[in-house]
Design a protein around this nucleic acid. Sequence first.
DNA 1: AAGAAACTTGACTGAATGGTCAACGCTGGT
DNA 2: ACCAGCGTTGACCATTCAGTCAAGTTTCTT
Lengths: 216, 216
Amino acid sequence: MAQANAQRGSSGAAEARTTTRIQRRNRRIILDAALEVFSAHGFRGATLDQIAAEAGLSKPNILYYFDGKEAIHRALLTDLLSTWLDPLRMLNPEGEPVAEIMGYMRRKLAMSREFPRESRLFANEILQGAPRIEAVIRTDLRALVDDTAALLRRWADQGRIAPVDPYHLIFSIWALTQHYADFEAQIRMIRGDDTDPTDGAEAFMDTLYTRLLAPR
Amino acid sequence: MAQANAQRGSSGAAEARTTTRIQRRNRRIILDAALEVFSAHGFRGATLDQIAAEAGLSKPNILYYFDGKEAIHRALLTDLLSTWLDPLRMLNPEGEPVAEIMGYMRRKLAMSREFPRESRLFANEILQGAPRIEAVIRTDLRALVDDTAALLRRWADQGRIAPVDPYHLIFSIWALTQHYADFEAQIRMIRGDDTDPTDGAEAFMDTLYTRLLAPR
DNA sequence: AAGAAACTTGACTGAATGGTCAACGCTGGT
DNA sequence: ACCAGCGTTGACCATTCAGTCAAGTTTCTT
Protein backbone atom coordinates (compact mmCIF):
# COMPACT_ATOMS: atom_id res chain seq x y z
CA MET A 1 0.00 0.00 0.00
CA ALA A 2 1.73 3.12 -1.13
CA GLN A 3 0.95 5.40 -4.03
CA ALA A 4 -2.24 5.25 -6.05
CA ASN A 5 -3.15 8.89 -6.16
CA ALA A 6 -6.37 7.83 -7.78
CA GLN A 7 -8.01 7.04 -4.49
CA ARG A 8 -11.65 7.47 -3.68
CA GLY A 9 -13.95 5.47 -1.55
CA SER A 10 -15.18 6.00 1.96
CA SER A 11 -11.76 6.27 3.57
CA GLY A 12 -10.57 9.33 1.65
CA ALA A 13 -10.04 12.58 3.50
CA ALA A 14 -12.39 15.48 3.01
CA GLU A 15 -10.46 17.05 0.11
CA ALA A 16 -12.40 17.90 -2.99
CA ARG A 17 -10.89 15.07 -5.04
CA THR A 18 -11.41 16.04 -8.62
CA THR A 19 -12.30 12.79 -10.29
CA THR A 20 -11.82 13.18 -13.99
CA ARG A 21 -14.05 11.79 -16.70
CA ILE A 22 -11.43 9.15 -17.59
CA GLN A 23 -11.14 8.08 -13.97
CA ARG A 24 -14.85 7.55 -13.63
CA ARG A 25 -15.02 5.60 -16.86
CA ASN A 26 -12.05 3.35 -16.14
CA ARG A 27 -13.04 2.67 -12.58
CA ARG A 28 -16.42 1.53 -13.75
CA ILE A 29 -14.86 -0.65 -16.45
CA ILE A 30 -12.50 -2.23 -13.93
CA LEU A 31 -15.20 -2.90 -11.37
CA ASP A 32 -17.40 -4.48 -13.98
CA ALA A 33 -14.59 -6.70 -15.23
CA ALA A 34 -13.66 -7.60 -11.66
CA LEU A 35 -17.26 -8.51 -10.85
CA GLU A 36 -17.28 -10.82 -13.83
CA VAL A 37 -14.06 -12.53 -12.81
CA PHE A 38 -14.53 -12.62 -9.04
CA SER A 39 -18.07 -13.96 -9.28
CA ALA A 40 -16.95 -16.70 -11.64
CA HIS A 41 -13.80 -17.83 -9.83
CA GLY A 42 -13.94 -16.49 -6.28
CA PHE A 43 -11.42 -14.15 -4.71
CA ARG A 44 -8.42 -16.46 -4.73
CA GLY A 45 -9.35 -17.98 -8.06
CA ALA A 46 -9.39 -14.63 -9.80
CA THR A 47 -6.16 -13.09 -11.10
CA LEU A 48 -5.32 -9.50 -11.87
CA ASP A 49 -4.32 -10.57 -15.35
CA GLN A 50 -7.80 -11.98 -15.97
CA ILE A 51 -9.38 -8.78 -14.71
CA ALA A 52 -7.05 -6.68 -16.83
CA ALA A 53 -7.82 -8.75 -19.92
CA GLU A 54 -11.55 -8.57 -19.26
CA ALA A 55 -11.32 -4.83 -18.78
CA GLY A 56 -9.11 -4.33 -21.82
CA LEU A 57 -6.50 -2.53 -19.75
CA SER A 58 -2.96 -3.36 -18.70
CA LYS A 59 -2.32 -4.78 -15.26
CA PRO A 60 -0.28 -1.78 -14.05
CA ASN A 61 -3.10 0.43 -15.21
CA ILE A 62 -5.53 -1.52 -13.06
CA LEU A 63 -3.23 -0.94 -10.13
CA TYR A 64 -3.10 2.74 -10.96
CA TYR A 65 -6.78 2.96 -10.15
CA PHE A 66 -6.96 0.55 -7.24
CA ASP A 67 -4.54 -0.19 -4.44
CA GLY A 68 -4.55 -3.90 -5.18
CA LYS A 69 -6.65 -6.96 -5.75
CA GLU A 70 -8.02 -6.77 -2.24
CA ALA A 71 -9.10 -3.15 -2.72
CA ILE A 72 -11.04 -3.96 -5.88
CA HIS A 73 -12.81 -6.76 -4.10
CA ARG A 74 -13.63 -4.54 -1.16
CA ALA A 75 -14.99 -1.83 -3.43
CA LEU A 76 -17.25 -4.36 -5.13
CA LEU A 77 -18.60 -5.74 -1.89
CA THR A 78 -19.23 -2.30 -0.47
CA ASP A 79 -21.15 -1.23 -3.56
CA LEU A 80 -23.03 -4.50 -3.53
CA LEU A 81 -24.13 -4.54 0.08
CA SER A 82 -26.32 -1.47 -0.02
CA THR A 83 -27.96 -2.64 -3.22
CA TRP A 84 -28.48 -6.03 -1.70
CA LEU A 85 -30.29 -4.76 1.36
CA ASP A 86 -32.50 -2.27 -0.44
CA PRO A 87 -35.42 -4.63 -1.08
CA LEU A 88 -35.70 -5.35 2.61
CA ARG A 89 -35.65 -1.64 3.48
CA MET A 90 -38.59 -1.11 1.17
CA LEU A 91 -40.92 -3.14 3.38
CA ASN A 92 -43.71 -0.78 4.34
CA PRO A 93 -45.01 -1.24 7.91
CA GLU A 94 -48.22 0.52 6.91
CA GLY A 95 -48.95 -1.75 3.97
CA GLU A 96 -51.00 -4.91 3.72
CA PRO A 97 -48.82 -7.59 5.36
CA VAL A 98 -49.13 -10.45 2.88
CA ALA A 99 -48.77 -8.11 -0.10
CA GLU A 100 -45.71 -6.51 1.46
CA ILE A 101 -43.99 -9.83 2.04
CA MET A 102 -44.86 -11.03 -1.43
CA GLY A 103 -43.50 -7.80 -2.82
CA TYR A 104 -40.25 -8.30 -0.97
CA MET A 105 -39.98 -11.83 -2.26
CA ARG A 106 -40.56 -10.65 -5.83
CA ARG A 107 -38.01 -7.85 -5.58
CA LYS A 108 -35.43 -10.26 -4.22
CA LEU A 109 -36.14 -12.79 -6.95
CA ALA A 110 -35.90 -10.07 -9.57
CA MET A 111 -32.46 -9.16 -8.24
CA SER A 112 -31.30 -12.74 -8.50
CA ARG A 113 -32.41 -12.77 -12.11
CA GLU A 114 -30.95 -9.39 -12.99
CA PHE A 115 -27.77 -9.49 -10.95
CA PRO A 116 -26.62 -13.10 -10.76
CA ARG A 117 -22.97 -12.05 -10.69
CA GLU A 118 -23.55 -9.91 -7.64
CA SER A 119 -25.43 -12.77 -6.03
CA ARG A 120 -22.56 -15.17 -6.60
CA LEU A 121 -20.00 -12.66 -5.37
CA PHE A 122 -22.01 -12.38 -2.17
CA ALA A 123 -22.46 -16.13 -1.88
CA ASN A 124 -18.74 -16.70 -2.30
CA GLU A 125 -17.99 -14.23 0.44
CA ILE A 126 -20.44 -15.80 2.90
CA LEU A 127 -19.21 -19.29 2.07
CA GLN A 128 -15.70 -18.28 3.10
CA GLY A 129 -17.10 -17.06 6.40
CA ALA A 130 -17.74 -13.45 5.33
CA PRO A 131 -14.31 -12.26 6.51
CA ARG A 132 -14.50 -8.98 4.62
CA ILE A 133 -18.06 -7.95 5.43
CA GLU A 134 -18.49 -9.42 8.87
CA ALA A 135 -18.68 -5.98 10.47
CA VAL A 136 -21.49 -4.78 8.21
CA ILE A 137 -23.46 -7.96 8.69
CA ARG A 138 -23.15 -7.85 12.45
CA THR A 139 -24.34 -4.27 12.62
CA ASP A 140 -26.36 -2.94 9.68
CA LEU A 141 -27.82 -6.15 8.35
CA ARG A 142 -28.50 -7.57 11.76
CA ALA A 143 -30.33 -4.44 12.88
CA LEU A 144 -32.35 -4.38 9.69
CA VAL A 145 -33.31 -8.02 10.07
CA ASP A 146 -34.18 -7.58 13.74
CA ASP A 147 -36.45 -4.67 12.89
CA THR A 148 -38.13 -6.57 10.11
CA ALA A 149 -38.57 -9.62 12.34
CA ALA A 150 -40.22 -7.44 14.95
CA LEU A 151 -42.58 -6.07 12.33
CA LEU A 152 -43.44 -9.56 11.13
CA ARG A 153 -44.13 -10.67 14.66
CA ARG A 154 -46.41 -7.70 15.21
CA TRP A 155 -48.34 -8.60 12.08
CA ALA A 156 -48.63 -12.17 13.31
CA ASP A 157 -49.80 -11.03 16.74
CA GLN A 158 -52.46 -8.93 15.06
CA GLY A 159 -53.60 -12.00 13.20
CA ARG A 160 -52.87 -10.42 9.82
CA ILE A 161 -50.48 -13.21 8.82
CA ALA A 162 -50.19 -16.73 10.13
CA PRO A 163 -47.81 -17.03 13.09
CA VAL A 164 -44.44 -18.23 11.82
CA ASP A 165 -40.88 -17.72 12.98
CA PRO A 166 -39.99 -14.38 11.39
CA TYR A 167 -36.27 -15.10 11.11
CA HIS A 168 -36.79 -18.36 9.30
CA LEU A 169 -39.32 -16.66 7.07
CA ILE A 170 -36.70 -14.12 6.02
CA PHE A 171 -34.00 -16.79 5.67
CA SER A 172 -36.29 -18.87 3.50
CA ILE A 173 -36.80 -15.99 1.08
CA TRP A 174 -33.05 -15.43 0.94
CA ALA A 175 -32.40 -19.13 0.44
CA LEU A 176 -34.88 -19.56 -2.38
CA THR A 177 -33.98 -16.42 -4.30
CA GLN A 178 -30.22 -16.86 -3.90
CA HIS A 179 -30.52 -20.45 -5.05
CA TYR A 180 -31.76 -19.50 -8.49
CA ALA A 181 -28.69 -17.34 -9.07
CA ASP A 182 -26.01 -19.25 -7.17
CA PHE A 183 -27.00 -22.74 -8.26
CA GLU A 184 -28.02 -21.67 -11.73
CA ALA A 185 -25.46 -24.03 -13.26
CA GLN A 186 -27.05 -27.03 -11.57
CA ILE A 187 -30.59 -25.98 -12.42
CA ARG A 188 -29.66 -25.48 -16.06
CA MET A 189 -28.05 -28.90 -16.23
CA ILE A 190 -31.17 -30.51 -14.83
CA ARG A 191 -33.86 -28.57 -16.64
CA GLY A 192 -31.97 -28.10 -19.91
CA ASP A 193 -29.62 -25.28 -20.81
CA ASP A 194 -32.19 -23.45 -22.87
CA THR A 195 -34.66 -22.94 -20.03
CA ASP A 196 -34.50 -19.81 -17.90
CA PRO A 197 -33.76 -21.15 -14.41
CA THR A 198 -36.19 -18.74 -12.79
CA ASP A 199 -39.01 -19.79 -15.10
CA GLY A 200 -41.94 -20.71 -12.89
CA ALA A 201 -40.05 -19.77 -9.76
CA GLU A 202 -42.16 -16.73 -9.03
CA ALA A 203 -45.40 -18.66 -9.45
CA PHE A 204 -44.11 -21.40 -7.18
CA MET A 205 -42.96 -19.03 -4.47
CA ASP A 206 -46.19 -17.15 -4.78
CA THR A 207 -48.16 -20.28 -3.99
CA LEU A 208 -45.71 -21.31 -1.28
CA TYR A 209 -45.92 -18.08 0.68
CA THR A 210 -49.60 -17.45 0.05
CA ARG A 211 -50.44 -20.74 1.71
CA LEU A 212 -47.90 -20.27 4.48
CA LEU A 213 -48.97 -16.78 5.41
CA ALA A 214 -52.73 -16.88 4.97
CA PRO A 215 -54.20 -16.00 8.37
CA ARG A 216 -56.11 -18.91 9.80
CA MET B 1 0.48 -37.25 -13.87
CA ALA B 2 3.19 -39.84 -13.61
CA GLN B 3 4.10 -42.11 -10.73
CA ALA B 4 2.01 -42.48 -7.60
CA ASN B 5 1.91 -46.24 -7.32
CA ALA B 6 -0.59 -45.81 -4.54
CA GLN B 7 -3.46 -45.36 -6.91
CA ARG B 8 -7.00 -46.49 -6.33
CA GLY B 9 -10.29 -45.04 -7.31
CA SER B 10 -12.68 -45.95 -10.03
CA SER B 11 -10.22 -45.56 -12.89
CA GLY B 12 -7.77 -48.22 -11.79
CA ALA B 13 -7.31 -51.37 -13.85
CA ALA B 14 -8.73 -54.66 -12.68
CA GLU B 15 -5.62 -55.75 -10.77
CA ALA B 16 -6.08 -56.91 -7.21
CA ARG B 17 -4.53 -53.74 -5.73
CA THR B 18 -3.51 -54.67 -2.23
CA THR B 19 -4.23 -51.56 -0.22
CA THR B 20 -2.33 -51.71 3.03
CA ARG B 21 -3.54 -50.62 6.43
CA ILE B 22 -1.31 -47.53 6.30
CA GLN B 23 -2.64 -46.60 2.90
CA ARG B 24 -6.23 -46.76 4.05
CA ARG B 25 -5.50 -44.75 7.16
CA ASN B 26 -3.49 -42.03 5.43
CA ARG B 27 -5.87 -41.67 2.53
CA ARG B 28 -8.69 -41.13 4.98
CA ILE B 29 -6.65 -38.61 6.93
CA ILE B 30 -5.74 -36.72 3.76
CA LEU B 31 -9.29 -36.65 2.45
CA ASP B 32 -10.57 -35.39 5.77
CA ALA B 33 -7.94 -32.65 5.91
CA ALA B 34 -8.62 -31.74 2.30
CA LEU B 35 -12.35 -31.52 2.96
CA GLU B 36 -11.66 -29.13 5.80
CA VAL B 37 -9.44 -26.92 3.68
CA PHE B 38 -11.31 -27.05 0.37
CA SER B 39 -14.67 -26.36 1.99
CA ALA B 40 -13.27 -23.38 3.83
CA HIS B 41 -11.28 -21.79 1.01
CA GLY B 42 -12.51 -23.25 -2.27
CA PHE B 43 -10.38 -25.16 -4.75
CA ARG B 44 -8.08 -22.35 -5.80
CA GLY B 45 -7.94 -20.91 -2.32
CA ALA B 46 -6.70 -24.15 -0.82
CA THR B 47 -3.02 -25.06 -0.91
CA LEU B 48 -1.33 -28.41 -0.63
CA ASP B 49 0.72 -27.05 2.24
CA GLN B 50 -2.44 -26.24 4.18
CA ILE B 51 -3.79 -29.71 3.53
CA ALA B 52 -0.49 -31.27 4.53
CA ALA B 53 -0.38 -29.25 7.74
CA GLU B 54 -3.98 -30.11 8.56
CA ALA B 55 -3.28 -33.78 7.89
CA GLY B 56 -0.03 -33.75 9.85
CA LEU B 57 1.88 -35.15 6.87
CA SER B 58 4.53 -33.75 4.60
CA LYS B 59 3.55 -32.38 1.21
CA PRO B 60 5.48 -34.98 -0.79
CA ASN B 61 3.76 -37.62 1.27
CA ILE B 62 0.38 -36.22 0.28
CA LEU B 63 1.47 -36.50 -3.33
CA TYR B 64 2.56 -40.06 -2.72
CA TYR B 65 -1.06 -40.97 -2.07
CA PHE B 66 -2.76 -38.74 -4.62
CA ASP B 67 -1.78 -37.70 -8.10
CA GLY B 68 -2.17 -34.03 -7.29
CA LYS B 69 -4.40 -31.36 -5.87
CA GLU B 70 -6.94 -31.92 -8.58
CA ALA B 71 -7.09 -35.67 -7.85
CA ILE B 72 -7.78 -35.09 -4.17
CA HIS B 73 -10.57 -32.72 -5.03
CA ARG B 74 -12.04 -35.15 -7.53
CA ALA B 75 -11.93 -37.97 -5.00
CA LEU B 76 -13.77 -35.82 -2.47
CA LEU B 77 -16.47 -34.81 -4.92
CA THR B 78 -16.96 -38.37 -6.10
CA ASP B 79 -17.34 -39.66 -2.56
CA LEU B 80 -19.64 -36.78 -1.77
CA LEU B 81 -22.01 -37.06 -4.68
CA SER B 82 -23.38 -40.47 -3.90
CA THR B 83 -23.90 -39.52 -0.27
CA TRP B 84 -25.56 -36.33 -1.36
CA LEU B 85 -28.10 -38.01 -3.58
CA ASP B 86 -28.98 -40.80 -1.17
CA PRO B 87 -31.83 -38.99 0.59
CA LEU B 88 -33.58 -38.46 -2.72
CA ARG B 89 -33.18 -42.11 -3.67
CA MET B 90 -34.88 -43.09 -0.45
CA LEU B 91 -38.20 -41.60 -1.57
CA ASN B 92 -40.66 -44.48 -1.51
CA PRO B 93 -43.24 -44.40 -4.34
CA GLU B 94 -45.47 -46.69 -2.29
CA GLY B 95 -45.48 -44.49 0.78
CA GLU B 96 -47.85 -41.77 1.90
CA PRO B 97 -46.95 -38.76 -0.34
CA VAL B 98 -46.82 -35.93 2.17
CA ALA B 99 -44.99 -38.04 4.74
CA GLU B 100 -42.47 -39.13 2.09
CA ILE B 101 -41.73 -35.56 1.03
CA MET B 102 -41.45 -34.42 4.63
CA GLY B 103 -39.10 -37.30 5.29
CA TYR B 104 -36.91 -36.28 2.38
CA MET B 105 -36.83 -32.70 3.61
CA ARG B 106 -35.83 -33.85 7.09
CA ARG B 107 -33.08 -36.13 5.83
CA LYS B 108 -31.67 -33.34 3.69
CA LEU B 109 -31.78 -30.90 6.57
CA ALA B 110 -30.08 -33.41 8.83
CA MET B 111 -27.29 -33.72 6.29
CA SER B 112 -26.78 -29.98 6.21
CA ARG B 113 -26.46 -30.03 9.97
CA GLU B 114 -24.18 -33.05 10.13
CA PHE B 115 -22.06 -32.45 7.05
CA PRO B 116 -21.75 -28.70 6.57
CA ARG B 117 -18.26 -29.06 5.10
CA GLU B 118 -19.54 -31.39 2.41
CA SER B 119 -22.37 -28.98 1.73
CA ARG B 120 -19.99 -26.09 1.27
CA LEU B 121 -17.67 -28.14 -0.91
CA PHE B 122 -20.62 -28.88 -3.13
CA ALA B 123 -21.82 -25.28 -3.11
CA ASN B 124 -18.39 -24.04 -4.07
CA GLU B 125 -18.29 -26.42 -6.99
CA ILE B 126 -21.70 -25.42 -8.30
CA LEU B 127 -20.93 -21.74 -7.86
CA GLN B 128 -17.94 -22.13 -10.18
CA GLY B 129 -20.20 -23.70 -12.76
CA ALA B 130 -19.74 -27.31 -11.64
CA PRO B 131 -16.83 -27.91 -14.06
CA ARG B 132 -15.70 -31.10 -12.36
CA ILE B 133 -19.05 -32.79 -11.81
CA GLU B 134 -21.00 -31.55 -14.80
CA ALA B 135 -21.13 -35.03 -16.33
CA VAL B 136 -22.64 -36.63 -13.23
CA ILE B 137 -25.19 -33.88 -12.83
CA ARG B 138 -26.28 -34.07 -16.44
CA THR B 139 -26.76 -37.82 -16.27
CA ASP B 140 -27.26 -39.39 -12.85
CA LEU B 141 -28.69 -36.45 -10.94
CA ARG B 142 -30.84 -35.31 -13.84
CA ALA B 143 -32.34 -38.75 -14.29
CA LEU B 144 -32.98 -39.06 -10.57
CA VAL B 145 -34.67 -35.68 -10.45
CA ASP B 146 -36.73 -36.40 -13.55
CA ASP B 147 -37.94 -39.65 -12.02
CA THR B 148 -38.78 -37.96 -8.75
CA ALA B 149 -40.56 -35.14 -10.53
CA ALA B 150 -42.64 -37.68 -12.44
CA LEU B 151 -43.56 -39.36 -9.17
CA LEU B 152 -44.54 -36.06 -7.61
CA ARG B 153 -46.68 -35.21 -10.61
CA ARG B 154 -48.41 -38.57 -10.37
CA TRP B 155 -49.17 -37.92 -6.72
CA ALA B 156 -50.56 -34.52 -7.63
CA ASP B 157 -52.67 -35.98 -10.42
CA GLN B 158 -54.09 -38.48 -7.96
CA GLY B 159 -55.00 -35.59 -5.69
CA ARG B 160 -52.79 -36.91 -2.91
CA ILE B 161 -50.75 -33.69 -2.75
CA ALA B 162 -51.64 -30.21 -3.95
CA PRO B 163 -50.62 -29.58 -7.56
CA VAL B 164 -47.31 -27.73 -7.58
CA ASP B 165 -44.40 -27.62 -10.00
CA PRO B 166 -42.39 -30.70 -8.98
CA TYR B 167 -39.03 -29.29 -10.08
CA HIS B 168 -39.43 -26.12 -8.08
CA LEU B 169 -40.60 -28.18 -5.14
CA ILE B 170 -37.36 -30.14 -5.22
CA PHE B 171 -35.26 -27.02 -5.80
CA SER B 172 -36.92 -25.32 -2.86
CA ILE B 173 -35.95 -28.15 -0.54
CA TRP B 174 -32.39 -28.00 -1.81
CA ALA B 175 -32.30 -24.24 -1.47
CA LEU B 176 -33.58 -24.17 2.09
CA THR B 177 -31.47 -27.01 3.43
CA GLN B 178 -28.27 -25.91 1.69
CA HIS B 179 -28.77 -22.40 2.99
CA TYR B 180 -28.44 -23.44 6.61
CA ALA B 181 -25.04 -24.97 5.92
CA ASP B 182 -23.65 -22.69 3.23
CA PHE B 183 -24.78 -19.40 4.73
CA GLU B 184 -24.21 -20.51 8.28
CA ALA B 185 -21.76 -17.67 8.83
CA GLN B 186 -24.37 -15.07 7.96
CA ILE B 187 -27.09 -16.72 10.03
CA ARG B 188 -24.80 -16.92 13.04
CA MET B 189 -23.90 -13.25 12.74
CA ILE B 190 -27.54 -12.29 12.65
CA ARG B 191 -28.97 -14.63 15.27
CA GLY B 192 -25.95 -14.64 17.57
CA ASP B 193 -22.96 -16.95 17.42
CA ASP B 194 -24.19 -19.16 20.22
CA THR B 195 -27.41 -20.20 18.49
CA ASP B 196 -27.49 -23.31 16.34
CA PRO B 197 -28.36 -21.99 12.89
CA THR B 198 -30.75 -24.85 12.20
CA ASP B 199 -32.65 -24.26 15.43
CA GLY B 200 -36.30 -23.96 14.50
CA ALA B 201 -35.56 -24.65 10.87
CA GLU B 202 -37.21 -28.04 10.88
CA ALA B 203 -40.37 -26.73 12.52
CA PHE B 204 -40.54 -23.89 10.03
CA MET B 205 -40.05 -26.10 7.00
CA ASP B 206 -42.55 -28.53 8.42
CA THR B 207 -45.21 -25.85 8.53
CA LEU B 208 -44.17 -24.48 5.15
CA TYR B 209 -44.50 -27.76 3.29
CA THR B 210 -47.48 -29.03 5.21
CA ARG B 211 -49.46 -26.00 4.10
CA LEU B 212 -48.11 -26.10 0.58
CA LEU B 213 -48.78 -29.77 -0.01
CA ALA B 214 -52.06 -30.33 1.79
CA PRO B 215 -54.51 -31.60 -0.84
CA ARG B 216 -57.34 -29.14 -1.35
C1' DA C 1 18.14 -61.43 10.45
C1' DA C 2 17.96 -59.55 6.05
C1' DG C 3 16.34 -58.14 1.71
C1' DA C 4 12.53 -56.03 -0.62
C1' DA C 5 8.97 -53.16 -0.79
C1' DA C 6 6.34 -49.59 1.22
C1' DC C 7 6.56 -45.23 3.17
C1' DT C 8 8.53 -40.55 4.23
C1' DT C 9 10.75 -36.12 3.58
C1' DG C 10 14.28 -32.01 2.99
C1' DA C 11 15.67 -29.60 -0.62
C1' DC C 12 14.59 -28.29 -5.09
C1' DT C 13 12.40 -26.44 -9.59
C1' DG C 14 9.46 -24.03 -12.77
C1' DA C 15 5.42 -21.58 -13.47
C1' DA C 16 1.99 -18.38 -11.89
C1' DT C 17 0.88 -14.22 -9.85
C1' DG C 18 0.54 -9.76 -7.05
C1' DG C 19 2.83 -5.86 -7.20
C1' DT C 20 6.68 -2.13 -8.59
C1' DC C 21 9.06 1.16 -11.40
C1' DA C 22 11.00 4.01 -14.73
C1' DA C 23 9.96 5.76 -18.89
C1' DC C 24 6.83 7.18 -22.26
C1' DG C 25 2.21 9.26 -24.11
C1' DC C 26 -1.52 12.31 -24.03
C1' DT C 27 -4.61 16.11 -22.69
C1' DG C 28 -6.31 20.20 -20.83
C1' DG C 29 -5.50 24.68 -19.19
C1' DT C 30 -2.97 28.88 -20.19
C1' DA D 1 2.42 26.16 -28.60
C1' DC D 2 3.72 24.47 -24.37
C1' DC D 3 4.15 21.93 -20.24
C1' DA D 4 2.52 19.87 -15.83
C1' DG D 5 0.55 16.30 -14.37
C1' DC D 6 -2.71 12.66 -15.50
C1' DG D 7 -2.73 8.26 -17.77
C1' DT D 8 -0.35 4.08 -19.60
C1' DT D 9 2.68 0.23 -20.03
C1' DG D 10 6.82 -3.15 -20.91
C1' DA D 11 9.98 -5.13 -18.19
C1' DC D 12 10.95 -6.54 -13.75
C1' DC D 13 10.81 -8.35 -8.91
C1' DA D 14 9.57 -11.38 -4.86
C1' DT D 15 6.66 -14.70 -3.29
C1' DT D 16 3.76 -18.47 -3.45
C1' DC D 17 2.70 -22.88 -4.76
C1' DA D 18 2.11 -27.41 -7.32
C1' DG D 19 4.86 -30.85 -8.20
C1' DT D 20 9.76 -33.64 -8.41
C1' DC D 21 13.63 -36.23 -6.80
C1' DA D 22 17.07 -38.58 -4.49
C1' DA D 23 18.04 -40.21 -0.31
C1' DG D 24 16.54 -41.79 3.69
C1' DT D 25 13.44 -44.76 7.37
C1' DT D 26 9.97 -48.11 8.53
C1' DT D 27 7.38 -52.25 7.79
C1' DC D 28 6.45 -56.62 5.78
C1' DT D 29 7.83 -61.30 4.37
C1' DT D 30 10.50 -65.18 4.61
